[in-house]
């Protein structure tokens, strides 16, 4: 037991000494949350252009659009310029005031948002028959699930995505430390002590686990305190945090055991982690994935962690409600740690 903790401590000290990695690990995820948070304001903003010469009608349309939540209406005199903005996704849709007084809608057919934009445009035009300043129609909008009376922070999804993405990235890139230890013979020397390969793996994984857990806790807390994210059931949260930190540490040690050089870990680690995270749904919600990609997504631990968090946050599930996710993640953690131990054993013998 002592030999295990000796490893954990030594590796942790090395990790802590690397100030820039600490910066990478703590500052970057928070900065990303802040940037995404403040620029998106949590909700997407849709810009709709009104094309036509200034007139009472077009002025009114612009202000009707601006009166709607999450919609920005702006004037664009030139139709070709408007089309160009749409093609570049710089604006979502355009409403053209024709010379004969009729209206034409232009949307980017390849954007999902254009469907919603058409409904919005219709609603704004319909309102032109009402006197200016008429109240908006009363429409009740509600999230499904148990949480119908709990206001959701608009950051909830982003926070969960970031938590999963960054915990994994850090764990993976920190694998370079193991490569260094392996190549310098430190690990081989450690083998000559009574500690076995198993103890060494557990010891190393222990420090990665602490690292991953500290980082995810940090994102968890910043999410809760600064962005009002309600992470849901605390027991479920703790189990998810621990399991995903275990998955990350298993992956980190595995990478450390397999890669021939530190340089390779540093160059291959981040893009690999980004690809896995993207596939797992950490960057774009999986609802837009085509079916085959959704199948691929289910192969990543990220997918399951994220599903677990969404159940906890949005559906107010308790630990028992995320049984499948917990089981899959536990399976991932066990197999990654097992593989890492086997790979390390092969490398050291």
């Amino acid at each position: 037991m002592r030999s295990i903790s000796a490893f954990t401590l030594a590796a942790l000290k090395q990790q802590a000494r690397d100030r820039t990695s600490i910066f990478f690990m703590i500052v970057l995820p928070i900065a990303i949350m802040v940037i995404i948070g403040t620029t998106f304001g949590g909700a997407t903003e849709t810009e709709i252009l009104v094309v036509g010469d200034p007139s009472t009608e077009t002025d009114r349309l612009v202000s009707e659009l601006n009166a709607l939540d999450g919609i920005v209406g702006s004037r664009e005199p030139d139709e070709e310029a408007a089309r160009s903005q749409l093609r570049r996704f710089d604006a979502e849709a355009a409403i053209v005031a024709e010379a004969d007084g009729s209206w034409t809608f232009i949307g980017n057919e390849s954007s999902d948002g254009s469907l919603a934009a058409r409904a919005i445009a219709q609603r704004a035009i319909d309102r032109l028959v009402l006197p200016p300043g008429s109240p908006q129609p009363v429409v009740d909008v509600r999230d499904i699930g148990e949480n119908r009376f709990i206001a959701q922070s608009p950051f909830s999804l982003t926070a969960a995505q970031n938590l999963v993405l960054f915990t994994f990235i850090t764990a993976l890139t920190a694998g370079g430390i193991i490569v260094r230890a392996r190549r310098s013979g430190v690990l081989r020397r450690a083998l000559s002590t009574p500690a076995g390969v198993g103890a060494i793996t557990i010891g190393l994984a222990g420090s990665w686990f602490v690292l991953a857990l500290v980082q995810s806790l940090l994102i968890y807390l910043v999410g809760a305190l600064a962005f009002d994210v309600n992470w849901g059931d605390p027991f479920g949260s703790v189990v998810l945090l621990i399991l995903f930190a275990l998955v990350g540490s298993g992956a980190g040690v595995l990478v450390g055991a397999l890669f021939p050089s530190e340089d390779q870990v540093n160059s291959i680690g981040p893009p690999l982690a980004l690809i896995l995270a993207a596939l797992g749904g950490c960057m774009v919600p999986t609802e837009v994935f085509p079916d085959f990609l959704l199948t691929v997504s289910r192969l990543t631990p990220h997918h399951w962690a994220l599903e677990g968090w969404k159940d906890l946050i949005f559906d107010r599930e308790s630990l028992s409600g995320i049984g499948t996710e917990v089981a899959v993640l536990a399976g991932y953690a066990l197999s990654l740690l097992g593989l890492a131990s086997a790979a390390l054993r092969r490398q050291l013998n």
Partner: peptide
């Protein structure tokens, strides 16, 4: 009276 039911983990459908 109109009630829209949506799910926060499917933001695009929710918007539509």
């Amino acid at each position: 009276e109109i009630l829209v039911l949506k799910s926060p983990d499917r933001p695009i459908s929710a918007q539509v």
